[in-house]
C-alpha cells in the first residue's frame, strides 16, 4: 500500500470513528486498533475484497464497542470542547451511548448500509455494487435500520 493510500484510509477511518465518538483521542485509539486488525489480516495472507467497506465496518463496530464499554464503566465525559464536563456534554455523550446501543441491535448489513449512506453519502446503487446486493434489498436494509433506530431512540436529541 502506498503512503498516499494509507493516509487516505487513515483519514477515512478517523473520520468514521470521530462521527460516532466525537472525541479526538478515542477516535485515534479506534483508528489504531482498526489498522492493527487490518495488518494482522494482511499478515495472515487475507485481504478484504473491498478495503474501504471492510475498514468502515470494522471501524463502526470498534467505535460502537468503545462507546458501549464506556457507558458500562460510566467513564467521565471526555468530549472535545472543554476539559470540564458540562450538562450539554453529558446529554450529548448519553445520546451517543444510546445511539451506539441502538446500532448494536441492527444486523451487520443494516449497519453497513446505514453508515455507508450517512457517513459517506454513498448512493444506494454504489452500496448495492459494493455489498453485492440488489438496490431494492439495500433500500430495504436502510429503511429497516431507520425504523429500528426510531423505535430504540424515540427521543434522541442533542441538548443545546
Amino acid at each position: 500500500m502506498s503512503v498516499e493510500a494509507f493516509e487516505h484510509h487513515r483519514a477515512q477511518v478517523y473520520g468514521w470513528a470521530f462521527r460516532l465518538l466525537q472525541n479526538h483521542h478515542d477516535a485515534l485509539d479506534v483508528t489504531q486498533d482498526v489498522f492493527i486488525k487490518w495488518w494482522r489480516l494482511l499478515a495472515k495472507g487475507d485481504s478484504p475484497a473491498n478495503p474501504p467497506a471492510w475498514l468502515r465496518q470494522v471501524t463502526v463496530n470498534q467505535a460502537i464497542d468503545a462507546l458501549r464499554k464506556s457507558a458500562v464503566r460510566k467513564e467521565p465525559i471526555a468530549l472535545e470542547k472543554s476539559a470540564v464536563a458540562e450538562p450539554t456534554d453529558l446529554a450529548h455523550r448519553e445520546s451517543l451511548c444510546r445511539l451506539a446501543d441502538a446500532l448494536h441491535h441492527l444486523t451487520q448489513r443494516q449497519r453497513s448500509v446505514l453508515t455507508a449512506k450517512i457517513f459517506d453519502g454513498c448512493t444506494f446503487a454504489n452500496i448495492a455494487e459494493t455489498m453485492e446486493l440488489s438496490i431494492p434489498t439495500v433500500k430495504s436494509h436502510y429503511f429497516r435500520a431507520l425504523q429500528t433506530l426510531r423505535a430504540k431512540l424515540p427521543d434522541l436529541r442533542r441538548e443545546s
Partner: peptide, 29 residues
C-alpha cells in the same frame, strides 16, 4: 424518520479537520 435523520446528523457531526500522521498527536495507548 426525517426527524431521526436530522438528529443523527446533529449528534454525529463530521470532524472539522483530519490530523496528519506527522502532526503532534497524543501518545499511543
Amino acid at each position: 424518520l426525517a426527524a431521526l435523520m436530522g438528529q443523527l446528523e446533529e449528534i454525529m457531526p463530521a470532524p472539522c479537520s483530519l490530523p496528519a500522521s506527522g502532526s503532534a498527536s497524543p501518545a499511543p495507548p
